[in-house]
Each structure stands twice: as C-alpha cells, then as structure tokens.
C-alpha cells in the first residue's frame, strides 16, 4: 500500500495482497482474466452516471439505461457489479431474478459477489488510510475449475447456502468453497476472527461495524 498515511499491520498487508493474487487466479466459474476485469469494473463503477441516477431515485428499478462500463464482461455481470458497488442496500429478489434470467449461472453469481465484495474490502481500506489503490496483479492463465459444493441447503436466501454453519453470513457463499475462502481471507483481518488483533475496545469495533451496516442499509 503505497503512501499510506497511517500504519498498517503486516498481517493485513499480506492478507490483502493474497486476496488480489487469488482474484487474479482462475476461480470456479470465471477465469483469472475475468476476475481481474470484475475488479476493474467495480473500481470504475463509482463514476457510472446511470448508477448515480438510480441511487437518487425512490426506486432504482424505475430508471432505465446502460451502465458506463469497460465492455469486457457480460451485461448481467455488469449489472451485478454496479448494483453491488453502488446501491447494495436496495437489492431485491426481483432484481436478482432479473439478473439470473439474463443468463448468469448461480455459481457464476456467487463468485461474482465474492470477488466484488473482496475488492471492496481491500480498496476501501487502501483509500481510507490515504494510500493509492493497489495495482492489480497480472491475470494467471488457466480454466475455471467448475467445482462447487454439494453440501448446501435452501435457507430462504436467494441462493443455496452451506448446509453447515453457525451464522448465515458465514454460509452465504458456501455454494463455492473458493468464494468463501476468498472473501473471508480479506474480511477476517477486519473483525474478531481467529487471531486478529485490533487496537480498539470491543464496543468501539461493534459501533463502527454497526454504523457501516446502517449506512449501507443492511439489515443483517
């Protein structure tokens, strides 16, 4: 993280670098090249005029138009990336059904969610501490593995989640074990997971976490 204005733990640096390197490798449903394109799209989506219009509208579904995009990914993927990045609190089942009807596999969707959310963690932190956004690594060659988990269950979510799990958020990406590893590899540094150390009181951590959930209109 170049030019950071604040100290960064070595473990965080390593975890975030590993996240970007994993993104650059082939996943289960997307190639390394696709996954890098997904992050590039997520980074540029913040300037999308259609997203800006939608975020001001009473309902985003009432605003038609085309996203300003890099043209490297399918339209359905573009919609998911932009909506997740810019207005995630107002995603609905109806929106999800529309995206799936336009041709995304549910596995491709889960991987997309993991890659976008992981990049949000890494990029938000870099910018938050006053560093420049980390340059993306070169995409690694290879075909997607097409490996998904059979240990899933319907739990009222839009997608099947891991059958075993204490909290639904930890199970939410369970259809693709690689998607779980990718996201939580980035997230775990940010919360009391495993050996994570934070120089804050527990209730200060919970206050920040709760405020971000409220700003993002996330009920979970």
């Amino acid at each position: 993280m170049r030019a950071a204005k604040l100290p960064v733990r070595e473990s965080t640096l390593r975890a975030h670098q590993r996240t970007l390197e994993t993104i650059a490798s082939p996943g289960a449903w997307w190639s390394g090249e696709d996954r890098i394109a997904i992050v590039e799209e997520a980074r540029s989506a913040v300037n999308c005029p259609l997203c800006q219009q939608r975020s001001k509208a009473l309902s985003p579904a009432t605003i038609d138009g085309d996203h300003d995009h890099n043209g490297e990914l399918p339209e359905a993927a573009i919609e998911v990336i932009h909506a997740m990045r810019n207005d995630s609190g107002r995603l609905t089942r109806r929106w999800f059904d529309g995206v799936m009807a336009s041709g995304l596999d549910r596995e491709a969707y889960v991987e997309l969610v993991s890659v976008v959310a992981s990049s949000v963690v890494v990029d938000t932190f870099a910018q938050g501490i006053g560093a420049t956004i980390t340059e993306l690594p070169m995409a690694q060659p290879g075909e997607p593995s097409r490996e998904s988990s059979a240990e899933v269950a319907e739990a009222g979510a839009w997608i099947p989640i891991a059958a075993q799990g204490k909290a639904n958020i930890l199970s939410s990406l369970g259809l693709l074990p690689g998607a779980v590893d990718l996201f939580f590899g980035a997230f775990n540094e940010s919360y009391y997971m495993g050996t994570t150390e934070l120089d804050l009181q527990h209730r200060q951590v919970e206050l920040v976490a709760s405020k971000v959930s409220a700003v993002n209109q996330c009920f979970y």
Binding site: F96, V110, V113, I159, I161, N168, S190, Y191, A209, F219
Partner: peptide, 24 residues
Amino acid sequence: SDAILVASGFNGITRVADATGIRL
C-alpha cells in the same frame, strides 16, 4: 487505522449479505 479496517471489512460483508438475500 484499525477503525478504518473494521469499516472496510463491513463495507464488504454488508454487500455479501445484501447480494445473497440471506435471512437472519
């Protein structure tokens, strides 16, 4: 730095919750 790290993590995980439609 840690407060920003926590906020960054939750900026990601709220998107996972919202985009997967998980229930409580």
